[in-house]
């Protein structure tokens, strides 16, 4: 009887310990693709694909980006949106902006496309000095679930526009990013024939801000 008790105890412990030590990796298979609707005040093309969650930095299993949309085009920029766990951040004046109380870290990646060469950006370059507003609207109720302005920051996978936000309810949402001209933040473009890239910001922002909208984001609250 003692032996049975010992075996049972050992079994229960081994089961639990094996979970901590034994499970090393998971397989993540891309599975679905869906169409996305986009609305833009400027040239915005439809080109959305959804991939499996991405783990930047390989071994950093705690940092898995979940895509919201990828490859939406706003004039000279390709715009991607992902989210992951809320993260603490810091700048020179705020040494620790806590992640406490937030549900996700929403990230907007803006990379120059081929059109970006007209403003001097290399293909795939991160586009700095943008002010990007985000708006997340519940597709079923029409209520604004979250809105605000991204801040510029760097993570281990590079610079991006991001923000910790509160989004405590699972649901279907429409996501809109409004991109302001970098000129608003005093970003300049050379205009002379010798050193200028050829284009001007007003070529793209002359009629106002660029807007990228992704409709039908099926979001579920996650345990981080």
């Amino acid at each position: 009887m003692k032996m049975k008790k010992l075996l049972a105890s050992a079994g229960a412990l081994a089961l639990a310990v094996s979970m901590l030590a034994g499970c090393s990796s998971s397989s993540a298979a891309p599975s679905s693709s869906s169409a996305a609707e986009t609305q833009a005040t400027e040239a915005v093309s439809e080109s959305v694909k959804e991939d499996a969650a991405i783990t930047p930095g390989g071994d950093n299993a705690g940092f898995t980006e979940t895509p919201i949309f990828e490859g939406l085009t706003a004039a000279f920029m390709d715009v991607n949106a992902v989210y992951f766990q809320p993260v603490p951040m810091a700048d020179d004046v705020n040494p620790d902006i806590p992640a406490e109380g937030y549900d996700i870290h929403l990230e907007c990646d803006v990379a120059a496309n081929e059109e970006g060469a007209k403003l001097g950006y290399g293909l795939g370059d991160w586009v700095p000095y943008l002010t990007i507003d985000y708006s997340i609207v519940n597709a079923e109720t029409g209520e604004v679930a979250a809105e605000g302005t991204f801040m510029e920051m760097s993570a281990s996978d590079g610079p991006h526009y991001g923000q910790n936000i509160k989004l405590p309810e699972s649901g279907t949402y429409n996501v809109t990013f409004t991109i302001h001209s970098p000129g608003e933040n005093n970003y300049l473009i050379h205009t002379d024939a010798e050193t200028g890239p050829g284009g001007r910001l007003s070529d793209y922002f002359g009629d106002g801000n660029l807007t990228v909208t992704y409709e039908g984001w099926e979001y579920t609250v996650q345990d981080w």
């Binding site: 499970c23 998971s26 930095g57 071994d59 950093n60 299993a61 705690g62 940092f63 898995t64 766990q85 996650q222 345990d223 981080w224």
Partner: peptide, 9 residues
């Protein structure tokens, strides 16, 4: 550490 993916666990 950055080794724990809570959802996976």
């Amino acid at each position: 550490t950055a080794k724990i993916d809570t959802s996976l666990w």
